[in-house]
């Protein structure tokens, strides 16, 4: 198993290096001249050239890349934003916390709700509960997240005026008492977390229901049933564990979503976060921010896969002994 882990780690480093290189090159080759974005249109050519020099964009691409790689790997310095002049690392860190809070809570909600309902629906296959929940979940699954968000906003923020329509906290947050601040956070997070969480739940529901149905129709369950094992024991002791295995991959591949998958939600609910940071950076051709944010998502994707592999190795005895 150790050998397999080491081999996966080496693969991880190689993939990361290739990915970083591709991201850097593609972004720098994409059309859009930052000097036009960050310079007055009436500025003389010399001023634009000065700006290109300041951004290091007058260097050949390979040189820009080696400088960036050296700074990023050795000093963990991702440069300075063309747009704001701030340290990119700091900008990404600032944007990361609200995104992680939102997506983390939504993912947790999605897993718990999706898996629970999926199992219950599988146990009650073809009954009213199964048909009803499956229909609802398919509706959420096929619905764009921003659309669901808009519906919830219209009902709870505009019509009923129960919950705030945007931002992570109220503008008067600092004036509140400690308990009121916590409640302020909760009120602002209910709608975006529910929106994203329901979409996640729908996805986990489908997988867990199918996996549970497969497990319940396996021969070892039939054998246990024939031996007279009680139904609850059968379901929760034997079928549940095996039906959860495919979910490990699903959770692993969902990890990048934690970092970048909430863009539409961030826009609809006016929340700060990595998605908005990246979108703004793309629109303004702020290369250092785009590269850093893309790198983070890419890193999360391969880490997610790696972690899924490792967990598989731990929980699946067949892989452990192969």
């Amino acid at each position: 198993m150790i050998k397999r882990l080491i081999s996966r780690l080496i693969e991880f480093i190689v993939v990361l290096f290739i990915g970083v290189t591709i991201i850097f090159i593609i972004i720098h080759l994409a059309p859009g001249d930052p000097s036009l974005q960050f310079c007055s249109p009436t500025a003389p050519l010399e001023q634009r050239e000065l700006l290109m020099h300041r951004f290091g964009l007058d260097q050949p691409l390979w040189k820009q890349y080696t400088i960036w790689l050296k700074n990023a790997v050795i000093q963990f310095d991702f440069g300075i934003s063309f747009f704001s002049g701030k340290q990119v690392g700091k900008m990404v860190r600032q944007a990361l916390s609200p995104t992680l809070l939102l997506t983390g809570l939504a993912l947790l909600f999605g897993i718990l709700a999706g898996v629970f309902l999926g199992i219950q629906a599988a146990i009650r296959q073809n009954k009213f509960f199964d048909r009803f929940v499956t229909t609802i979940m398919f509706a959420f699954y096929s619905m764009p997240s921003f659309w669901l968000g808009l519906i919830l906003l219209q009902i709870f923020a505009v019509q009923l005026n129960w919950l705030p329509s945007s931002q992570l906290v109220s503008v008067f947050h600092e004036q509140f008492s400690c308990g009121a601040r916590l409640w302020d956070y909760c009120r602002h997070l209910i709608l975006p977390v529910s929106t994203l969480g329901l979409i996640f739940a729908a996805s986990f529901y489908r997988y867990s229901r199918n996996a549970m149905l497969t497990a319940l129709s396996s021969e070892y369950i039939l054998a246990a049933q024939a031996r007279g094992t009680p139904r609850n024991h059968l379901i929760y002791r034997y079928a549940l564990g095996n039906s959860l295995l495919p979910l490990i991959s699903l959770v692993g591949t969902s990890l990048p979503v934690l970092f970048s998958g909430a863009l539409m939600i961030e826009v609809v609910f006016g929340l700060p976060g990595l998605g908005r940071l990246m979108t703004d950076a793309v629109l303004t051709r702020d290369y250092p921010v785009i590269v850093a944010a893309a790198l983070l998502s890419f890193f999360a994707a391969i880490i997610g896969n790696l972690m899924a592999d490792i967990i598989y190795l731990i929980v699946d005895p067949r892989l452990r002994h192969s």
């Binding site: 808009l150 505009v158 945007s166 609809v268 006016g270």
Partner: peptide
């Protein structure tokens, strides 16, 4: 508030 729909809601 970059989003127009959000602006109107607020």
């Amino acid at each position: 508030i970059p989003d127009n729909a959000n602006l109107t809601r607020q």
